[in-house]
Nucleic acid binder design. Sequence first.
DNA 1: TATTTTGTTTAATATGTACTAAACAAACTT
DNA 2: AAGTTTGTTTAGTACATATTAAACAAAATA
Lengths: 156, 156
Amino acid sequence: MKPTNYSNKLDFVDDFSLKIEELGHSRIYGQILGWLLICHPPHQSFSDLVENLSISKASVSNSTRMMLETGLIEKTRVQGERQIYFRIKDGSLIDFMQKQMAHTLSLEHITQKGLELLKSDTETDSTRLKRANAFHHFLAQQLTGLIEKYKIERQS
Amino acid sequence: MKPTNYSNKLDFVDDFSLKIEELGHSRIYGQILGWLLICHPPHQSFSDLVENLSISKASVSNSTRMMLETGLIEKTRVQGERQIYFRIKDGSLIDFMQKQMAHTLSLEHITQKGLELLKSDTETDSTRLKRANAFHHFLAQQLTGLIEKYKIERQS
DNA sequence: TATTTTGTTTAATATGTACTAAACAAACTT
DNA sequence: AAGTTTGTTTAGTACATATTAAACAAAATA
């Protein structure tokens, strides 16, 4: 059973970061992402992150670099200041879906090549591979639709 | 550029396992899974896996236990033999989608609770969190449809 | 009961990653 | 130029995971 409600922003950040960790990233990566979703103002400087999350400068440097590469966040500058600010990038969730689709396409491709190998192998039953291939083909196709659908839904 | 074609089953297994590793599992986990997709016969004993993949018994023991827990593979026995055989479990891909959905629902839930926290915080802009929440809500909803759709498509 | 087969657990190593503090670099201020 | 501020890189530690060989347990066979 999960706790019923968050009593402050860091509670949200903790819960969120644990989930992100479960999905394969580092805890700190999740903390920064979670914080950037709920902080005020929406843009945060390097030292804002260091102080609010009680983490080292190096961790901020590493995790933000990853997130910038992934396109999850972006840098901004504020008029007249020289500090860099980070904020959640608008549209990053669409990018995320597109990345999922890339993986799906890879797996479709790999299983397809596996099937071609089996053509010259009358002995081996290809049912399993055919199913896996059909699955990824199906997913890739449907994901394309989903992405479009979401883009539209998002506008409303 | 990926190699054009596989000249044998282990080529497929290598390629497949690298992708699986990229998706967050161990290399050996991917090797076993890939091998079980393309081997003959479709069921393989403990020592079949050890010998064909050149890995240790302990690795087979660990990785198969994980895959059994996840429901990706299952055990079988063959008439009159006492060895255990492993094979790809039919329907495991549907389980996989359902697991994805569980994650999506978690994130919808977490962001929802984050939004509730913000209700008593007039200062913070909740646009980011609202978007994230709407996204996961959308995904969860659509995934339900996808799963049903795939179940039907699979029958044909 | 003794022996073989089959699979699990343990112990040890290797490898990789997360994280930090401190050194460093770059750019702005004075 | 000298000193701040800001961010990156480096070096080191801690921690987790993957992998194996070998010890072990369980069950079938002889």
